Simulated assay, not measured.
Amino acid sequence: MFDFLRATIRMSTPLFLTALGGTWTRQTGVLNISQEGAMLISSFFAVLGNYFFQSWIAGVLSGMAAGLIFNMLFALLCVFLRANIWVVGMTLNILADSLSILLMKSVFHVKGGFRDPRMVRIPDISLPYIGNFSLLILLAAILFFIFWFVDFKTVFGMRLKAAGENEEALSAAGISPVSLRFKALAINGIMVGLAGAFLSTSYLVAFVSGMSAGRGWLAVAAVIFGDGNLLWSIVGVFLFGAAQAAGIELQSFGFSSHLALMLPYILVIIALVFKNWKGVKLAKKA
């Protein structure tokens, strides 16, 4: 049971970091569906920074910078130029996949994956009764409380929600909804960058083509599940993370690997259907 809990936390961490920022963009009225691509490209640049500077800190900062730049491109196209978020998001996801392969061949002269013994893993910390965990898992827990405080207790948190719910009133108060959306997407980009750095320099110490493996989509699903509510989004994150951990566990009992890998996505469908069904039921009562 304890091993399953540890696996759930490890699987949930990249989703958790991504969903924290993704919830804020959702609150402003923008659903960022390019997070799969942002996580993948951040994973590559985290390895790149780690390899060249032989420092996990440089790797994490490189991943954060890549996530920020990627999200600013999304913001430019979807917030400033008002392009369709689905078209742009899908295009950026495909671009990130192709770009990471191109960069890997150009920089490291390999294809498929890159690993080097000189790269430095993000250090673990030891907690009583829990054991060793990546430093980024502790950081994720601290960031949750910061996000929770800002979301529920500050004027900035109220303005984020107003940007999505009543941008005309926000504009009348002299506050630009576009500026708030750019800020939310910038924060989201940094968080996705952290998630990518976790994947490639803590979960693994390598870059593998396509290593985001749908985690960005699961984070988007968690944000949709929460519908802009930070706490419900995190509930969704741990549900999907537990499903990923359970899928891996089931393989050890002889279950088909393909069926086990489908489990998180089956749970996503069930959770979203249940949430929408409950919403329709409440609407009928009202």
Rank of each mutant, 00 (worst) to 15 (best):
Y203S: 05
E168F: 06
I137K: 02
M119C: 08
A46C: 06
T23S: 02
K285D: 02
G22H: 05
L92W: 12
F114Q: 03
N188A: 12
G247A: 07
V88F: 09
I266L: 15
I85Q: 15
G21L: 04
G254W: 10
W217P: 06
A213Q: 13
N84S: 10
I175S: 08
V30T: 12
F16R: 01
F145P: 00
L261M: 10
D227Q: 13
A186V: 11
A286H: 01
A221E: 12
V150Q: 00
S171N: 10
D124L: 01
L138V: 15
N32E: 05
L267N: 03
N276L: 12
L17R: 01
L231R: 09
F45E: 00
I33N: 07
L127P: 03
P128A: 10
A186E: 13
T18Q: 04
L99K: 03
S42T: 06
G89Y: 10
R181Y: 08
L81W: 15
I269W: 08
S98W: 14
S62T: 14
F240W: 03
V47D: 03
S106C: 02
A184V: 11
F52L: 10
V88S: 08
G113Y: 14
M1S: 15
L250E: 00
R159W: 10
D151I: 02
A162Q: 11
S106T: 12
C78S: 11
A271G: 06
M11H: 04
L68S: 03
L77C: 13
T201C: 11
T18D: 08
L95P: 00
